[in-house]
């Protein structure tokens, strides 16, 4: 069971309190109607599915209810950092990347 740091509550809590919410930074276009079918497909379905450091969303669903972002290594499942929705993806140094 993962331990996850909620950046809003500033507490590290067990996975059972959280719901995974998919890849982070997938932006819904301001005017979806102007999107091509391919662009809309990319928004709906295409995912990086990174083997390595993955920027992803979690919701503290049984806590504050907030969605936030995390960088997690998908091979070790280790969380490198979590950050609030809307903040840019943090830059990691190399040692963290290989965690």
């Amino acid at each position: 069971m993962l331990l996850i740091h909620c950046p809003y509550c500033d507490e590290t809590l067990p996975e059972l309190e959280f719901a995974y919410a998919g890849q982070a930074h997938v932006v819904r276009a301001a005017d979806p109607s102007s999107q091509t079918d391919e662009e809309w497909r990319d928004f709906l379905f295409i995912r990086d599915n990174v083997k390595g450091v993955h920027a992803e969303r979690w919701q503290h669903v049984h806590g504050c209810g907030r969605f936030f972002n995390a960088l997690r290594h998908t091979v070790s499942d280790k969380f490198l950092t979590t950050y609030k929705a809307g903040e840019p993806r943090p830059v990691l140094d190399d040692t963290e990347r290989s965690a």
């Binding site: 069971m1 993962l2 599915n49 083997k51 993955h54 992803e56 998908t74 091979v75 499942d77």
Partner: peptide
């Protein structure tokens, strides 16, 4: 499990 992963581990719950 609820999250994507390549770890081949999986959780206890």
């Amino acid at each position: 499990d609820q999250y994507t992963s390549y770890s081949q581990r999986g959780g206890l719950p």
